[in-house]
Each structure stands twice: as structure tokens, then as C-alpha cells.
């Protein structure tokens, strides 16, 4: 029953499909136990720097090799169930990150694959030809974040109406004063 941790997954990918992994800054574990063990207090000025949101222990894969990695996970490692496709907009770092969670039918934890693309040219190959279940979630990422998926059979807006301009869940989409909401409206 495959139950790979993220370190094992990265090692496996490096061994079987060399060159797919991209370098990332590892996430350092906090020294103290948990957020609930100590009362929350505001960090003192200058004591804690900006949070490095892109630091991760999960496997980050180059965008053009995503399909190879996904098919490898499905055919060789038994991760046949693609559960979740998420897009996250990291405005400060200028990337949009796509996160994929794969699970195996026998159970166990996920195989997490991340893909990072620049915000102004966000293109990730579509997984829909291999997993029809990726169809709607990729359309959602396109509609709300503006990520294009070459290979998707029907990449149209899904929540917003067809003539809508802009991608609403991007962090720089104005909450006030865009052409659909006048300045008098309450948000």
C-alpha cells in the first residue's frame, strides 16, 4: 500500500524521472510544539521576518513534466485517484502555484505535487485527457485565477458569466472600484 511521505516521494521522483524536481526552500519546523500550547501574541517588531510562503517540503515539479509525473504516479505507484486541484496566488513572489493531491485506492495519505508558474504567463498542461475528473476543477482555476490549461477540451468560465473580464480570486483583483462594482456600493 503506497504511503509515501513527501521526502520519500521526492527521492522516488528524482530516481525514476530525473530532472523533474525543482529546487525549493525547505520548510523549517517550528521548535515549540503548537499554536495552541502558547498564547498567541503579536510578534515584536523586527523579531520575525516576513513569512516565506513558498518554502515547502512537498515535491515541486516543472510545469512541462507534470503529465509524466502524474502518469508515473498512477501507473507505477498506484495513485489512481486525483482528489483535488487547487490554485494559489502568491502575489508577493509572482507565482501561481497549482497543488495536486493524489490518493491510492487502498488508502493512506496523499501524494502531493506542486507546480509553480509565473503569474503573467500561467500555463500548466491539462490533466483532463488522462483524468476526466480534473475537468471542472481546472475550469475553476482558469476562471478564478487565469491559469490556462493547454489540452483541456472545454476551457470556459465556470462561475462567472462568459463576458466577465478579470480573474476574481487573484490577489490584485480590486475589491472596490472595478467596472462591475461602483464606488458607492458597499463591499
Amino acid at each position: 500500500m503506497p504511503n509515501l511521505s513527501s521526502a520519500e516521494l521526492k527521492e522516488l521522483l528524482e530516481r525514476e524521472l530525473p530532472g523533474v524536481l525543482q529546487p525549493t526552500r525547505p520548510r523549517t519546523q517550528p521548535a515549540e510544539a503548537t499554536a495552541s500550547a502558547e498564547p498567541a501574541r503579536k510578534p515584536r517588531k523586527g523579531e520575525e521576518g516576513p513569512v516565506d510562503l513558498l518554502a515547502t517540503d512537498d515535491a515541486v515539479v516543472a510545469a512541462d513534466r507534470l503529465v509524466d509525473v502524474a502518469l508515473f504516479l498512477r501507473d507505477k505507484m498506484g495513485y489512481t485517484y486525483l482528489s483535488n486541484i487547487t490554485a494559489t496566488d502568491y502575489l508577493a513572489d509572482g507565482v501561481i502555484e497549482m497543488v495536486y493531491h493524489f490518493y491510492s485506492l487502498e488508502g493512506g495519505g496523499p501524494a502531493v505535487i506542486k507546480v509553480r508558474v509565473p503569474r503573467d504567463a500561467a500555463e500548466v498542461p491539462s490533466l483532463t485527457p488522462h483524468w476526466p475528473g480534473a475537468n471542472l476543477q481546472e475550469r475553476e482555476a482558469f476562471d478564478l485565477f487565469g491559469v490556462r490549461f493547454p489540452g483541456h477540451p472545454f476551457l470556459e468560465r465556470i462561475y462567472m458569466w462568459d463576458e466577465f473580464e478579470g480573474h476574481p480570486m487573484r490577489r490584485d483583483f480590486p475589491k472596490q472600484g472595478d467596472k462591475y462594482l461602483s464606488d458607492d456600493d458597499e463591499v
Binding site: A35, S36, A40, V51, A55, S83, V99
Partner: peptide, 21 residues
């Protein structure tokens, strides 16, 4: 959990940076 019992603690929860599914 007794450490999370008050509404103040629930409101002030600041999880460490990271992601989870």
C-alpha cells in the same frame, strides 16, 4: 480541548505557516 475552550482563544488562533489538506 481545555486550552481552546474560550472564544477568545478560538478567535486568536494563529496556526504556524504551512499548508494542509
Amino acid at each position: 480541548n481545555p486550552s481552546m475552550a474560550s472564544i477568545g482563544r478560538q478567535k486568536a488562533l494563529r496556526p504556524p505557516p504551512g499548508d494542509v489538506y
